Lab assay of single mutants.
Amino acid sequence: SDIKVHVGDITVELHNVSEEFARLVEEALRLGLNEEQAKEWAHKALH
């Protein structure tokens, strides 16, 4: 599904992702990663 993740003043739109993936992206953003890094990190975490 499509999910918007908000962290501080950052909003990341995720398309066709699981809630778990979105949660991992949100966690990575909170750790200070940028959007691209957060998506990559979440992807690796799920595989």
Rank of each mutant, 00 (worst) to 15 (best):
S1Y: 11
S1R: 13
S1L: 15
S1N: 13
S1G: 13
S1T: 14
D2W: 07
D2C: 05
D2M: 15
D2Q: 11
D2L: 14
D2T: 15
I3S: 06
I3K: 08
I3H: 14
I3V: 11
I3G: 05
I3M: 09
K4N: 12
K4R: 12
K4D: 10
K4S: 13
K4H: 10
K4G: 09
K4L: 12
K4C: 07
V5H: 07
V5E: 06
V5F: 03
V5S: 05
H6P: 07
H6M: 10
H6G: 09
H6T: 15
V7D: 06
V7W: 15
V7T: 06
V7P: 05
V7S: 06
V7M: 07
V7K: 03
G8C: 09
G8M: 03
G8Y: 01
G8R: 03
G8Q: 06
G8L: 03
G8P: 06
G8W: 02
G8F: 02
G8I: 04
D9C: 09
D9A: 13
D9G: 15
I10W: 07
I10N: 07
I10P: 04
I10L: 13
T11E: 11
T11C: 04
T11V: 14
T11Y: 10
T11F: 10
T11M: 11
V12G: 05
V12A: 06
V12Q: 04
V12D: 05
E13S: 13
E13K: 08
E13V: 15
E13M: 06
E13D: 12
E13L: 06
E13P: 04
E13G: 08
L14Y: 02
L14A: 04
L14E: 04
L14W: 02
L14M: 08
L14C: 05
L14V: 05
L14K: 04
H15Y: 03
H15E: 08
H15L: 09
H15P: 06
H15Q: 10
H15K: 11
H15N: 10
N16I: 04
N16S: 08
N16R: 04
N16Y: 06
N16P: 06
N16K: 06
V17K: 06
V17D: 05
V17C: 06
V17Q: 07
V17W: 07
S18K: 05
S18W: 04
S18I: 05
S18V: 06
S18N: 08
S18E: 05
S18L: 06
S18M: 07
S18R: 09
S18C: 04
E19Q: 15
E19F: 14
E19N: 11
E19P: 11
E19M: 15
E19H: 14
E20W: 14
E20G: 09
E20I: 13
E20K: 12
E20A: 15
E20M: 15
F21A: 00
F21R: 00
F21W: 08
F21M: 03
F21S: 00
A22W: 12
A22N: 04
A22V: 08
A22Y: 08
A22R: 08
R23A: 10
R23C: 05
R23Q: 09
R23K: 13
R23G: 05
R23H: 08
R23V: 07
R23S: 08
R23P: 00
R23L: 10
L24P: 00
L24T: 02
L24D: 00
L24R: 08
V25R: 02
V25E: 00
V25L: 06
V25T: 02
V25Q: 01
V25W: 03
E26P: 00
E26I: 13
E26N: 07
E26F: 14
E27H: 15
E27P: 00
E27A: 14
E27W: 15
A28D: 00
A28F: 09
A28H: 02
A28M: 04
A28R: 01
A28K: 01
L29G: 01
L29N: 01
L29E: 01
L29W: 01
L29Y: 03
L29A: 01
L29R: 04
L29C: 02
L29F: 03
L29I: 08
R30H: 11
R30K: 14
R30T: 10
R30S: 09
R30Q: 10
R30Y: 10
R30F: 09
R30N: 09
L31V: 05
L31H: 10
L31Q: 11
L31R: 12
L31Y: 12
L31A: 12
L31T: 08
G32R: 01
G32P: 00
G32F: 01
G32T: 01
G32M: 01
G32H: 02
L33Q: 03
L33I: 03
L33E: 01
L33P: 00
L33G: 01
L33K: 06
L33D: 00
L33H: 07
L33C: 06
N34D: 12
N34S: 12
N34L: 04
N34Y: 03
N34W: 02
N34T: 14
N34M: 04
E35G: 11
E35I: 15
E35A: 13
E35V: 14
E35Q: 09
E35D: 06
E36T: 11
E36L: 11
E36H: 12
E36I: 10
Q37K: 09
Q37W: 03
Q37A: 12
Q37T: 05
Q37S: 08
Q37C: 07
Q37E: 13
Q37R: 08
Q37I: 02
A38Y: 00
A38Q: 00
A38I: 01
K39Y: 11
K39C: 05
K39M: 14
K39W: 13
K39Q: 08
K39H: 04
E40P: 00
E40C: 07
E40T: 08
E40G: 03
W41P: 00
W41V: 03
W41G: 01
W41D: 01
W41H: 04
W41N: 02
W41Q: 03
W41K: 03
A42C: 01
A42E: 00
A42H: 00
A42W: 01
A42M: 01
A42K: 00
A42R: 00
A42Y: 01
H43P: 00
H43M: 12
H43E: 08
H43N: 09
H43W: 15
H43A: 11
H43L: 13
H43F: 15
K44Y: 13
K44G: 09
K44I: 06
K44R: 14
A45Y: 15
A45K: 15
A45R: 14
A45H: 14
A45V: 15
A45F: 15
A45P: 00
L46M: 13
L46N: 03
L46W: 13
L46Q: 07
L46F: 11
L46D: 03
L46V: 09
L46H: 05
L46C: 03
H47Q: 12
H47S: 14
H47D: 09
H47K: 13
H47E: 11
H47F: 07
